[in-house]
Design a protein around this nucleic acid. Structure first.
Length: 585
RNA sequence: GCGCCCGUAGCUCAGCUGGAUAGAGCACAGGAUUCCUAAUCCUGGGGUCGUGGGUUCAAAUCCCGCCGGGCGCACCA
């Protein structure tokens, strides 16, 4: 258990004891209190607002309550001083041994530092990417891909049982278009001249080899056949090929999903949609009705029509939503209802969907649907990813493209590398538009967060390699570093670095709770920054250097500190899906 | 017209689910290089947190109204 959770529980325990002793009214539940490191280090190691939060329900003055809480907490182990400050904060200063012990744990855990059982093994489903199987992944997909993957990893790190899921939209008109595009390439492969690809079909070169493959397998069989005959064949063949393509693209990013769900097979052909709608119908959540014409936007062929509608409004949406198209087939939304119902029935009470910004208007109805199919027992969180604007040295990026007008994920990864893409995608909260500058992200300077964080890790590894020659006899084995005399870390800058390093479990938990993996990238940058600052102080103040020839004990303690930093960086990069480097070249 | 997202230093953005004096990088000004890697570092200036109200011991954070920008608005996915 992290230091922070430990003391948070100690404080809650003290509050419960006060309730039991009649010093506080029987509050149920106890209002949420915070236990966090204060911004100002002079306020100690931990601060809690408990007294202020409890003051009103208890009908007592905050400072009186603070005093009572202090008396109960002082008995606790590891607490050195408790001060009451400001309007009623309790500022706890912990014994150095508490931090020393935590640093030892960090060294021991290595990249597993920050792992916890917070999630209690509860299942979470993270659905991300879900690019339509009509071509290779383009850059627009990779932000969501990285976000979803990092989110899944951080949730797993804190003890959830995470499933990474991909929804294959293989049922709509787009895959029919894909099938027709393939048929053209198939005829081309058999020697026909096809000329310009007609508007409305997919022109990308990536279908050329697929056409050849189909021709190789089936020969002339579909040339003279009618479309009703060849369409299903081409569709199946094309979708399989596109999914293979997309899986390769995902592999390039280092992403592997656990489950791929086919809209066509799992929802349409299985009857799951009909079943879901029937169930909702039975609960009077589906009806035949007519929607009002949307205001403010002209729709040419609008006509009032009775439709099969889901009562989304009853669950907080702005209007009820159609489940059937005018030709009688299911809408995409109907399929999505069945899909989320299926997820719920598979045991996921927590679902996370990662979508593009253009789907923002879809969130309310989907949440409404989840509330309906789970009868309020499941929760859906939708993460919206904004656009990535590609730049080269500040100007809009021009590049050779593999397919059509799209810049693919592979184009970008080929140029800058997987690690750069993954980390940069998390250097901004997802709902803001992002600029991705090919020049900036590959610069070897501190302006580039990828480099800056990697460099900190590489510097630590470099120090470790030098020990043998600079301070012979000092071990760099992590097991030995755990035994270092950490009391020798006395400089304020060292203590600050250690303290920041040991924030890591909190950052992981907060990031998982909030479903915000970008916090990890920010924290790593901050940690790297603190490390570099200390390193550079060694330039002017040689006594602050990590390797002190005449003082092996001090050297050992500082190496332990460095090892802790390296462990956290490795742990953090692992969440993001980036390999820490041993040296910069 | 409606819904959602965004609005924080000159620029690009954080801000730990309501806490103490709002942070970082770039840019700007000044300083530092016989250095374990200068592939930089230190110091400093710079803010009505879009705006007006409200909730509270406490608001950048929550609620309401405006302003500006983006996305979306039967039957596409």
């Amino acid at each position: 258990m992290s230091v922070f959770r430990h003391y948070a529980e100690a404080i809650t325990g003290a509050i419960r004891a006060m309730i039991a002793a009649g010093e506080l009214p029987n509050l149920d539940p106890i209002p949420p209190i915070t236990v966090e490191p204060p911004r100002d280090p002079s306020h100690g190691d931990l601060a809690t607002n408990a007294a202020m939060v409890l003051a009103k329900p208890a009908g007592r003055k905050p400072r009186d309550l603070a005093e009572a809480l202090r008396r109960r907490l002082t008995a606790g182990a590891g607490v050195e001083t408790i001060e009451i400050a400001g309007p009623g904060f309790l500022n706890l200063r912990l014994a150095p041994a508490v931090w020393d012990e935590e640093l030892r744990r960090a060294i021991e855990a290595g990249k597993h530092y920050g792992d916890s059982d917070l999630g209690g093994g509860r299942p979470v489903n993270v659905e991300y990417v879900s690019a339509n199987p009509t071509g290779p992944m383009h850059v627009g997909h990779c932000r969501g891909a990285v976000l979803g993957d990092a989110l899944a990893t951080v949730l797993a790190k804190v003890g959830y049982r995470v499933t990474r899921e991909y929804y294959i939209n293989d049922a709509g008109a787009q895959v029919d278009t894909l099938a027709r595009s393939l048929h053209l390439r198939y005829r081309e492969a058999l020697g026909e001249t096809i000329g310009e690809i007609p508007a409305g079909l997919y022109p990308g070169d990536y279908l050329v080899p697929v056409g050849r493959a189909l021709a190789g397998r089936d020969r002339e069989r579909w040339v003279e056949a009618s479309e009703t005959e060849w369409l299903p064949v081409c569709r199946r063949f094309a979708v399989d090929a596109m999914m293979a393509l997309i899986r390769d693209d995902l592999a390039v990013l280092g992403i592997r999903h656990d489950t791929f769900t086919s809209e066509k097979e799992a929802l349409h052909e299985s009857g799951a949609i009909a079943e879901a709608v029937a169930e909702l119908h039975g609960r009077d959540l589906v009806y035949e009705g007519t929607l009002e014409k949307p205001k403010g936007k002209e729709i040419e062929d609008w006509e009032p029509r009775a439709q099969t509608l889901f009562r989304a409004k009853q669950f907080g949406d702005d209007t009820d939503r159609p489940l059937k198209k005018s030709d009688g087939s299911w809408t995409y939304f109907a399929a999505d209802i069945a899909y989320h119902r299926d997820k719920f029935r598979r045991g996921y009470a927590t679902m996370i969907d990662v979508w593009g910004a253009d789907h923002g208007g879809y969130i309310k109805r989907m949440k409404a649907a989840v509330a309906a199919v789970s009868e309020g027992r499941a929760e859906l969180d939708v993460k919206i990813c904004n656009l990535v604007k590609l730049l080269r040295a500040g100007a809009p990026a021009k590049m050779s493209k593999r397919s059509g007008d799209l810049v693919t994920v592979r184009d970008v990864v080929d140029e800058v590398g997987r690690d750069v893409v993954r980390l940069i995608m998390l250097t901004q909260k997802p709902e803001s538009p992002m600029e991705f500058d090919f020049v900036r992200v590959t610069e070897k300077s501190k302006d580039n967060p990828v480099f800056y964080i990697q460099y900190a890790h590489a510097r630590i590894r470099s120090v470790m390699r030098r020990v043998a020659s600079e301070v012979p006899g000092v071990s760099t084995d992590p097991r030995d570093l755990q035994g270092a005399n950490l009391a020798r870390l006395g400089h304020p800058a060292e203590r600050a670095l250690v303290r920041l390093t040991l924030q890591w479990p909190r950052i992981v938990e907060a990031s998982a709770d909030a479903h915000e993996p970008h916090r990890i990238a920010y924290y790593l940058h901050e940690l790297a920054s603190a490390f570099h600052a200390l390193w550079n102080q060694g330039t002017e103040a040689p006594e602050l250097r990590f390797l002190v020839g005449e003082d092996p004990e001090l050297t050992h303690a500082r190496l332990a500190m460095c090892q802790g930093v390296a462990a956290v960086i490795a742990s953090g990069l692992a969440v993001i899906g980036v390999e820490p480097v041993e040296e910069m070249r």
